[in-house]
Every structure is written in structure tokens, then in C-alpha cells.
Design a protein around this nucleic acid. Sequence first.
DNA 1: CACGCTAATTTGTATGATTTATTAATAGGG
DNA 2: CCCTATTAATAAATCATACAAATTAGCGTG
Lengths: 237, 237
Amino acid sequence: MNSGFESIAGSKRSLHVQVAREIARKILSGQLPQNSIIPSELELCEQFGVSRTALREAVKLLTSKGLLKSRPKVGTKVVERAYWNFLDSQLIEWMDGISDNDEFCSQFLGLRNAIEPEACALAARNATVEQRMKLSEIFEQMCDIANADVFDQVKWTSVDTQFHSLIFNSTGNVFYLPFGNILTTMFANFIHHSSTDGSTCIEEHRQIYSAIMAGNSDKARLASSTHLQAVKSKLPI
Amino acid sequence: MNSGFESIAGSKRSLHVQVAREIARKILSGQLPQNSIIPSELELCEQFGVSRTALREAVKLLTSKGLLKSRPKVGTKVVERAYWNFLDSQLIEWMDGISDNDEFCSQFLGLRNAIEPEACALAARNATVEQRMKLSEIFEQMCDIANADVFDQVKWTSVDTQFHSLIFNSTGNVFYLPFGNILTTMFANFIHHSSTDGSTCIEEHRQIYSAIMAGNSDKARLASSTHLQAVKSKLPI
DNA sequence: CACGCTAATTTGTATGATTTATTAATAGGG
DNA sequence: CCCTATTAATAAATCATACAAATTAGCGTG
């Protein structure tokens, strides 16, 4: 293999996404340094064993995530890390195995710490009737799972994700919407709940839940902060 | 014109981006409803007057921003708003003129309120020596502009943007990085500073600046909060 | 009525030709 | 010898066309 790229012919998912993932991981890991020019389209086509169409769509995908920038004659360049969109779910998925998992989760918690208490406060004020009904429904499911004889970890992660996502969707603020998907991605790919999470967390969730339902934004903010502190104490770092 | 799409032949920037922008704006404005199937590739090619290559790259771009999803035989569908990535700078640019500007800025302030105080606190703790030097340099420029006889609004916006962006870059947390670009985009496209901002804000910025330089994270958080409160009071709503 | 097969439609991938934009080299003039 | 303008080379951008794959819908048969 001439320059570290492997052929990926014969796989399942959309071709250009696979190619994009491969290139992305080389960028994220630093194997392709920032500000460096990556090989020309034709070279990459050969190395990946795909057509220019597929490769170009992959490059476009990475460009839209801020990883690459291409100009005629000069070539395609890896842009600096400050421009990478780490708030893109797909990019986050691609980070799997690149950086230390615990550190990554810890940094994510650093984001949640900022955004979630405020999201809960906004949701307490702005959630629609439908959203409150839905939240109520989800919380009931949480209780059921927490009180069950055997703790179903998969189900817990699912409703936990739904619970927090719905809160972001209930803020009435478009800029909070994407955090629901980011959280979902992180829960699915990086954060692994322990089997005791359900029983220990249910009271914290109840605090958040009832504060939002009561429209008490200050209490909701506080309850969320408390919950995140508890989450932090469980981290290995 | 058969279904509301205009030909965009003969323009400046990259073709597929222009096409993507057109489609995106129709989605963002609701002209193309959520969950609806957009016309087939061939139809869109005709309506835009571009080749299938260009159109497909446009669709891929929108897919990566969570606006579209396409499957063979079924077609390309507008996904629901909850999945749109409003934390993507390009998408934010495309919002121009779509929603009420004041409301949009107000919602953005709702995001800054959550994220920026915490970012300042993290920067106070984690900024490297180089970043502190750079911040110091930028703050000096702010002072110069604020103290100048005639207030240069363009320069002020530029250094103000740099100041806040650098703080996000100094958090040592990858998830905070994108906010620098988002803020830059918002400042450039939506937020219009009044001519008195420089003189009135310089003290607030000094508080943030010196708290970060001193490594006092609590004070930095508080100073940022105070600053945002002042910004809020200037909003028309 | 149920099941499976076929056909039609739409996106996915491939390939080659042409156009455009940018750099770099080269020639001409001061 | 240096500076400027023109030109040539190059890599991405766009176009056009052909074929493959996937999925749905409809047909036909048991």
C-alpha cells in the first residue's frame, strides 16, 4: 500500500461515506497533519479503489464538516482543528477509538454542564403541552425500568436518551435542538452506563421532571446541575 | 417555472453550494415541508439547470447537515426539524432573512448565556501561555479601538469576534471549539453592533480578560454572565 | 387470499470529456 | 538586473452518459 490508504471495496454502507470516514479518521488522528495537502483526486481514487464520483462526494462531506478545503490547482488541504465541527454527530461517531474514551466523555460532560441546566430551565418555561405529555410518558417508562426486578440496560439507555433529547427539543430555541442528537450519539457510542445507574439516578430525574412540569425554571436548572454532578462522580477520572 | 425552483446559471461561487443554498432555504422557510419527498434528481437538474453531479453534491451537503435523507427508489426526503444541525455555520448563514432577525439573535443569546460563562471559566483554568499572550494582544487592540476618537465599527466587530473565539479555543475542550466559528458567523451576518458598543463594553471585557489571565474561573464565569446581561439589555425585544 | 416473482423507478457508482481557476514560469520592457 | 504582463501547466469543477443496485408496486399464480 503506497501511502497508508487501504482499499475498501466490497462493504455495506454508502461508498462515499465509508471513504469519508477513512479520511476523517486519518485527519482526526493526526495521521494527515493540519494544513497539509492530501493526494490528488486521481491518486486517492486509486488508493481507495473507488471512482472519482464517490471520492468527490466524500471530500464534499468532509468539507462541510470543516475538515477539508479544496481549491483548483492547489489541491485539497486539511484545515486546522479550530474549524472542525465537533458538534456534528457523524464526526463524533468517527472519533471512536481515536482519543482516550474517558477523557472524551469527560470533555463531553464539560459541555453538558454548560448547556443542560440552561436547557432544562428553558424547557420548564417553554415546553408545549404536547411536549410535557410526552415527557411525562417517558418518565413513567424510566420509573418502570428502574423499579423492575432485573435492570434492562439497553432500555434504560434508550429512555434516558429520549428524556434528555426531548428536553432540548422543548426549549423553544433552535440552537438547542442539535444537542439532542449529539447526546444520542454520545450515549450510543461512547457512554456506557453501569447497571446501577437506573436505580440511583431515578430520583435525580424525578427532580428535573417535576421542576419542568411545574414550570419552575430555577429549580429545573438546579436539578439538572445536581444530576450532572452525580454523573461526574461516576466517571473514572 | 414549474415548481418554484429558479435557474441559477451564471453566478460566482461553487455551483453545488449555490444549489444547496437554494434548496436549504426552501426547507428552512417551510416551502418544502418536513417529511415531504423532493422532486427526483433529474427534475431538479432541469429546474436548476445544472448537471446531476452538481446536484448530487448539493444533496450530499444538505444530507450532512441533517436536512435531507435519500434512499434508492423512494427518493430524497426532507427530514424533521429536530435533526437539522443549527450549530453548523453554513446553515446559520443560510438562515439570513428566513426568520425574524431579532428573534433569531435573541435565541442565539439564549445559547451564549449557557455556553459562554462556562467557556470563560474553562479558559481561565486551561488556556496555554500562547493563548494568554494572544488574548492579551487582542484585548489591547480592543482598548485602542474603544479609546479612539472615531469609533471604527468594522474593526471593533473583528476584534470582538476574535476575543470571544479565542476564549472558546482556550477551553481545552474540543466540544467548545465550534462555538468560535458559530459566533463569528452570527457576528458577521446577523448581529449588528451599535456605534456605542465599544466604549460601553470595554470595561466588561476587561473584567473577563483579567479574570482569565488571573486564572480565576469563578470570576471569569461571573464577568461573562454580566457581559451577556448587558448585551441582552441592548436587544430590541 | 396469500405468496413470490417481475418490472419499473430512483438513487448509487463509474468513466471520460470539457471548463474554470490558480499558480508558476517565461518573455518582454524598463 | 528587476519588475510586470502574458502564457502555460495543473488540479479541481462541472458536464454528460452509461450502467449497477436497491426497493417498491403491481402482476400473476398457486
